[in-house]
Write a protein that binds this DNA or RNA. Structure first.
Lengths: 187, 187
DNA sequence: GTCTATAAAGCGATAGAC
DNA sequence: GTCTATCGCTTTATAGAC
């Protein structure tokens, strides 16, 4: 399944031909159609469901139910690792940009919507007003996608790392009242 | 040529088949191969060159040589109009995300690099330090691409308009020393 | 320049042996 | 489950009439 996902990710839906899929997964057409009776569209749908599952467990659920600051920090870590610091791109982003979107509109919409919603939820619980939380969440998710496009277009993964670092800093929640340990000489 | 560009933009390189190109442009295969002896790859290259030309004239040159504030304001206006407030997406972004990038790596890289460079130039001349100018320019171009992905993924062009508005505000150059007219009671 | 006809290869999908 | 063989169809590209 990860192999299958990688074919669609790198080649796009139209570019991922059955011959290339068999080549990279090692599975013949017979096996592929055994697992995915609906053919190529079935395979892509399964990959999208698999990705959604991963994001639910690693990103959305922690944001929705966990301690906000920790969940957001985890989100940035997982995101950087998932996209391999910009070397890997977002399959949903790839599908979203061309006519493939119309085939999988619901799944694509849900991916972005739930990410924004989950992040906004964490920001609200972290002390931001609802409108500000939503705007910040939108900015962060949008920034990740933009960073992926730019990193790939310029073939420079440093762009991604830099952008994610900046986004993470700008997303910082308001300070809590807790006193932090101070070194001597600090104000 | 605009029609040709739109086919690649909406369908991607792999999805833009010759039959769909003939269908949308009204040109038969004979005519297409007469104008583009190199076939499909030749057509895409011509479209990329055409887009580059447009951006040079409407975005890059004003940023590189014009009055910084006016050029940046013009950039936001032209950008919003060009992408039809998010209804249209970026052909170069589409090509950048899948394996098509490797076919047109130089043109794609140049598109993003020159946009960032031109914007950074305007920001420097507007009073920003070189490092800050470059970081801000990167953020802006990245934000535009992200806004396009998200607007299309969520099928909600308001996202694009909102994001571009925010990016434009955050890109604001430092105030010049000029006194602004003050209303009575202002500090 | 633009058309039709056609070539050669590749496409997604199916059938049936094993 | 996995393989090979094969079906229609579409693809890019070419040839040649007009």
């Amino acid at each position: 399944m990860p192999l299958l996902a990688e074919v669609f990710r790198e080649l796009g839906y139209e570019g991922a031909t059955l011959s290339r899929i068999t080549e990279r997964t090692g599975l013949g057409k017979g096996s592929l159609y055994h697992f995915f009776p609906g053919g190529k569209e079935d395979m892509a749908a399964a990959v999208l469901a698999d990705i959604d599952d991963w994001f639910v467990r690693h990103i959305y659920q922690p944001l929705e139910t966990g301690e906000p600051r920790a969940a957001i920090a985890k989100m940035w870590d997982e995101t950087a690792a998932y996209f391999r610091s910009g070397r890997r791109i977002c399959l949903i982003g790839v599908f979203a940009l061309d006519a493939t979107r119309d085939k999988f509109a619901a799944a694509i919409r849900l991916y972005f919507a739930r990410w924004i919603d989950a992040l906004a939820s964490a920001l609200r619980r972290g002390g931001l007003l609802p409108a500000a939380a939503r705007a910040q969440a939108e900015t962060a998710v949008l920034g990740i996608q933009g960073a992926l496009v730019l990193a790939r277009g310029l073939n420079d993964e440093a762009i991604f790392t830099r952008a994610v670092g900046r986004l993470a800093r700008e997303l910082a929640l308001p300070e809590r009242g807790k006193a932090r340990p101070l070194k001597k000489g600090a104000p």
